[in-house]
């Protein structure tokens, strides 16, 4: 009996949870993102002038990959944990000799893995189509990882708070999606008029998407260090919050 076996088993369980349904969890988001690229890039892109010296289709690819990664990390974590609360299988995990940090990390791992798969496959397909190598793989991975951690943790908190499936959908439809769309996926923040630019600067997702764009294309609107610091800081804070909530048994232990 090895000490790491319970934790590794948790990781395997969360990997199994989403990969066994890959036709529902991996394939559709990639198709959706590629469709976005085809529609906004190829059909409408010609009518939009270059941004930062790049064609519009190239400009939106990093944001779309980041959007896919964020959404899927969030969906995976929130669905996995809420489903475990719904069918009460979470009680079995809580009764087993597993630590809160291990449980949080395992749920999060499912979200990170799914989000990264969607984000990286989208990037690979799009960049291959456009014959464009990534500018800086390290920064690309850094921003994709911090985004998936942040959104995965957000999904965990949402799943703990939710009392119905509706609650989960509401958060995604009315908070996360607008924040992502207003986070500069389809436009450069430099193009916004003064007041909107100031308002946008309060959207944390703007920094994550801008950082990803730097990693993929080498262009950015905001300070790279600010984007990197904010992304990593928010991911760590959200992770700490999740661990604390699990340790306190929030909505888990009666």
């Amino acid at each position: 009996m090895g000490n790491s076996t319970p934790f590794v088993t948790l990781l395997r369980q969360e990997w199994f949870r989403f990969t066994r349904l890959w036709k529902q969890t991996i394939f559709p988001p990639i198709v959706t993102t590629v469709l976005f690229i085809l529609i906004f890039g190829f059909s409408l892109g010609d009518r939009i002038r270059e941004i930062h010296g790049l064609s519009y289709i190239l400009f939106i690819i990093p944001g779309l990959a980041a959007m896919g990664a964020m959404m899927n990390a969030h969906t995976n974590c929130s669905f996995a944990l809420y489903m475990s609360r719904f069918d009460q299988s979470i009680d079995n995990m809580l009764a087993a000799p597993l630590r809160s940090i291990e449980l949080v990390t395992a749920f999060l791992w499912g979200g990170i893995a799914r989000g990264m798969l969607v984000g990286l496959v989208t990037l690979a397909v799009s960049l291959l189509l456009l014959k464009q190598p990534p500018y800086h793989l390290g920064w690309t991975l850094f921003f994709l990882i911090t985004q998936t951690v942040f959104f995965g943790c957000w999904g965990i908190v949402g799943a703990l708070r939710a009392k119905t499936w509706d609650n989960l959908a509401t958060a995604q439809n009315f908070i996360i999606t607008p924040l992502i769309y207003l986070g500069g996926v389809f436009y450069s923040v430099d193009l916004l008029p003064g007041i909107w630019r100031t308002i946008s600067s309060f959207n944390p997702l703007l920094y994550m998407i801008d950082g990803t764009r730097y990693g993929v294309l080498g262009v950015h609107d905001l300070s790279l260090l600010t984007s990197a610091g904010l992304s990593a800081g928010m991911a760590l804070l959200m992770f700490a919050l999740c661990v604390i909530l699990f340790q306190k048994g929030y909505r888990l232990v009666r």
């Binding site: 009996m1 000490n3 076996t5 319970p6 088993t9 948790l10 369980q13 079995n92 087993a96």
Partner: peptide, 10 residues
């Protein structure tokens, strides 16, 4: 199988 793993069985 996962249950066995949670309790440390390889």
């Amino acid at each position: 199988e996962f249950q066995g793993g949670f309790y440390g069985f390889d």
